[in-house]
Design a protein around this nucleic acid. Structure first.
Lengths: 125, 125
DNA sequence: TTGACATATTCCTATATGGGAATGTAATAT
DNA sequence: ATATTACATTCCCATATAGGAATATGTCAA
């Protein structure tokens, strides 16, 4: 089997950096024309259309015609599965930070005590 | 240009569902042998080795030999870029939920008032 | 040494990409 | 009607899969 299609799910769709850039551009919640995307991200028009097409097929953006324009709008809820999946791992680095902070605070406290009592200064764990 | 390599970054690496399953398996923080991964996820041995290789190259897992085993361990910090990127969009659905909750509460309040005062019951926006 | 076990790597194939160029299609302007 | 503008689609190509099968490598055991 080959690699899964980019249109399989949000995970595959957002693997492309340009598509993430497009999503970032649509963060203002307003509808953006292909031309707008094309100009702001310096993409060729077919490239922009294709990337928007991928995002549309996985539900990350929606389109509606406005005259001869097509306005693409972000549908951020489609990113929720990604958020839900990765959030489980957040604790691994936030807890690490907690430990660092905790250690720093303990050290500061020890030093304060040392200064006051003029005691020993060799604890580390 | 073709699609970016799966080893380009965490975004590409986690696009594969089996690799996400492997990451989930390593969530206990302990080292797991390829055999363990192979058995628990019902993968062929070369498949497991290859997926672990991809995860290793992007820094999501680390390996160290233990006799004739190789123990793979999760390095969750490598997922932080994904978390940081997607978290920006969380507000789009949490605020939506807030609005729903708010609306439900307002409705409940209106009903309570209606019951008490026996007044009209047609508000909706 | 020989064999069994654990893992990595290589080869093969079907499939899907992303970009560029060219072209198709639809709506507006003149 | 014709030209222009805005997009989508198609074709071509280089590249990278993921899986299966086979094989290589490394380690321990008898």
């Amino acid at each position: 089997m080959a690699r899964a299609a980019t249109t399989t799910d949000a995970f595959n769709a957002i693997a492309e950096p340009r598509r993430r850039a497009i999503i970032g551009l649509l963060r203002d919640g307003r509808g953006h024309s292909v031309r707008d995307v094309t100009h702001r991200l310096r993409l060729a028009q077919p490239a922009a259309s294709k990337h928007l097409g991928v995002l549309r097929r996985v539900g990350i953006v929606s389109v509606h015609r406005q005259g001869r324009f097509r306005l693409y709008r972000l549908n951020a809820e489609a990113l929720k599965p990604v958020h839900d999946w990765v959030q489980v791992y957040e604790q691994f680095w936030t807890h690490q930070l907690d430990r660092i902070k905790e250690r720093a605070e303990r050290k500061a406290l020890e030093q304060a005590i040392t200064r006051r009592t003029d005691a020993d200064d060799k604890e580390d764990t």
